[in-house]
Amino acid sequence: MKKLINDPRSVVDESVEGFGMAHADLVDVHTDPIFVVRKGAPVAGKVALVSGGGSGHEPLHAGFVGHGMLDAAVPGAVFTSPTPDQIIPATAAVDSGAGVIHIVKNYTGDVLNFETAAEMAQAEGISVRSVLVNDDVAVEDSLYTAGRRGVGGTVLVEKIAGAAAERGDSLEAVAGVAEGVVRNVRTMGVALSGCTVPHAGVPSFELAEDEIEIGIGIHGEPGRHRIAMEGADAITSRLLDPVLEDLGIKAGEEVLLFVNGMGGTPLSELYIVYRRAAQILAERGAKVERSLVGNYVTSLEMQGCSISVLRLDDELTALWDAPVHTPALRWGM
């Protein structure tokens, strides 16, 4: 394992410290417990958005703290959901009285920790609503799993719900917008390599030169199945087809197409995937109205990508287009 780190145990602390130094105009970093809040929070009268999860998915979540998106991010250890004693003060720090939305990726650990935190924050008099993101179509939504995972679509939920909060929507309304995004976004991912959790020191899995993992999550875990390496166009179909199937995208519908890098794949390759994905959507008569290409929800240095499709309507498009100013996503200001 070779990483630009000092000590596996200080990775998150030092990284978040550096993040805070680089973006001191946008965020404040709290230590012990560690969490990141938007500069000037709480914003008077505004519903606050808090998200969090294991570290290793940067820029998610801290990179999305700022105007028009999150009010706080709570980073756990690498691939480990944060604990209530971080989530509770983060929640309290950003509550203006208008209430707080917890955006939680659907993993047992995240759900349990945020659940506990929400309960305790409620007990302290803060109105908390939780929204569960579960966009991964690789996992069948059956009784025999913990349900679908939250993956790439999370960034879309955070952006759009953030815009709703910024325009002054109520707690229920923001939660409704967030849930609307969750209902309309699906994702599937592929890995060309595993990744190495710093404290583990060995890759999460090993793939032969001619193997790839289809249906991965974002924690370096193996996917649903392993197949022989294919060309980018074929892989794109493998990811996108189930996404479109599951969403039931029909001709004439408008979508946002999001090709997300897992961290170790060059941007140029993401555009090769984007190209084929946009072609497939065009062949189906769908209209790609908005797009996002880049490393937004990563698994450390894993090579691979995920494709997310969000069904748009005028409101979602307007909220997507609304100004946002965070370290990792910025436009309109």
Partner: peptide
């Protein structure tokens, strides 16, 4: 444990 383990195991 609740405040330092995190993940699924922490709350459990």
């Amino acid at each position: 444990l609740m405040s330092k383990v995190g993940g699924a195991a922490g709350p459990l």
